[in-house]
């Protein structure tokens, strides 16, 4: 059953890469990157179980945290044009 889960998560990777390549707006690509990150964590966990290696789960934990920070950094960049500005002054056109 673990191989079925691994195949399903690998398929999710393929669909996310398809969306990343095709996505019209940049936010589709950020969404695809986020999905790939989550799918990578799960693939790590499933493979850790398939190959009887519990260390993979530690990699999954760190990658989960990194994935959130990466997504938020990219989004902040696309919202304010640069990463330097702080978030107090909202853009006028809300």
């Amino acid at each position: 059953m673990f191989t079925a889960a691994a195949i399903a998560v690998a398929l999710a990777h393929v669909f996310a890469v398809y969306r990343a390549l095709k996505g019209p707006t940049v936010f589709d690509r950020v969404l695809a990157a986020n999905t790939i990150g989550t799918a990578a964590i799960l693939l790590l966990a499933v493979l850790g179980f398939l190959t009887e290696r519990p260390e993979f789960l530690d990699i999954g934990i760190t990658y989960g945290l990194l994935n959130l920070i990466g997504t938020l950094a990219v989004l902040k960049f696309f919202r304010y044009g640069d990463l330097a500005r702080s978030a107090e002054e909202e853009p006028a056109d809300t």
Binding site: T25, G64, L65, N67, K76
Partner: peptide, 30 residues
């Protein structure tokens, strides 16, 4: 291993909505 899986579950359940919320706001501003 179950403890690590629980931590991964909590991380996923916490970071998913945060990232999606930030993405929706950024898309809406754009």
């Amino acid at each position: 291993v179950t403890a690590k899986l629980l931590i991964i579950l909590l991380i996923l359940l916490y970071t998913g909505p945060v990232a999606t919320h930030a993405l929706a706001r950024a898309a809406r501003y754009a």
